[in-house]
Design a protein around this nucleic acid. Sequence first.
DNA 1: ATTACATGCAACAGGAATGTTCCAGTTACT
DNA 2: AGTAACTGGAACATTCCTGTTGCATGTAAT
Lengths: 188, 188
Amino acid sequence: MERTTGRALRADAERSVRAILEAAERVLAADPAASLEQVATAAGVARTTVHRRFANRQALLDALADSAARQLAQAVGDGRPETAPPLVAIHRITANVLQVKGAWTFALQLPPETGSEAAALHADVHRACLALLARAREDGLLDPGADLEWTSRVYYALIGESLREAGEPDALAARVVETLLHGAGKRD
Amino acid sequence: MERTTGRALRADAERSVRAILEAAERVLAADPAASLEQVATAAGVARTTVHRRFANRQALLDALADSAARQLAQAVGDGRPETAPPLVAIHRITANVLQVKGAWTFALQLPPETGSEAAALHADVHRACLALLARAREDGLLDPGADLEWTSRVYYALIGESLREAGEPDALAARVVETLLHGAGKRD
DNA sequence: ATTACATGCAACAGGAATGTTCCAGTTACT
DNA sequence: AGTAACTGGAACATTCCTGTTGCATGTAAT
């Protein structure tokens, strides 16, 4: 987490940083132009505390993006994309990602700074996703002619759409996977 | 278009308003927090001209949303959603909408003011889309069990995804329709 | 040709947000 | 218990943006 010197932060400082990041996600999701004063109030700290922990507004946004990207990468990794059977992995990852994205919607759509940890993590996640879709195609889950780049973007878009409503992650994930594989056309 | 009194605007004023709206779309798409000064510069007019034509920043955004919504409604109407065969209409509308949304991406994702012209037009467009999908389901194009609310959101999401790359509208539309109907799964 | 409309420039006032500083009091770690 | 770290409040300076005004000049409609 955020450090000032070589030593780790005190526990209360860790709590403040976490509270600030969580408040930033909520407040900025509602209004991306919200002030640092509003974020501080929502976090239950003084604005000087926000400035103490984050050099400036951009640094706070960067920390938000990095933190959320770490959680996304963790969610994808927990779905064992490289080893579980493709359909199982896709379903599990979808449910995991829905939860993380639901909690960090704003943070995860921030364009990551070039060279940042968030950018690297997002690239890793995308690579893992493409590899999983390639395995799915090899296993006959996807059409042999499926364009994986387009398919991965459709997959992300379906996840994004599912976030717009409340629901049980597994049920929402099932619908995402069903739609990804079969669309809305007539079932044979 | 924007009026000051009962008489229509002079031709040069009409041109200014159009230039401002087009510049606003470009500049605000790149940076939603861009200043009115930046929009004015991009439009090739003075900031006082922007203030003369739009009472305030929100009025400019409202005008942008209304204008773009009218063009979207026109694009959907041109696809004859009520009378053309469903597959033809869906394809035609998709290509038309891709073009309009490509040109007014920012304006079309502005949340319209409650009671505004844009809000009414967006509601009309959504109703027309649902009716078209219902006809498609009746004709056997969609699965009898297809949830039309979800299907329409998937459809919009696929259009949104297609906007992220350059391409010929008809080819992009074909892919949207193909994905909407059949997903990425194995073709039988 | 005339007249009304359109525009740009410069200046002004006000408001909001950001980043910084200082210090007293509180908390947590050893 | 002692000490270092953490925090909040208040104030300050700066910057940027918005909205407004007045006036001279240019443009377009009749």
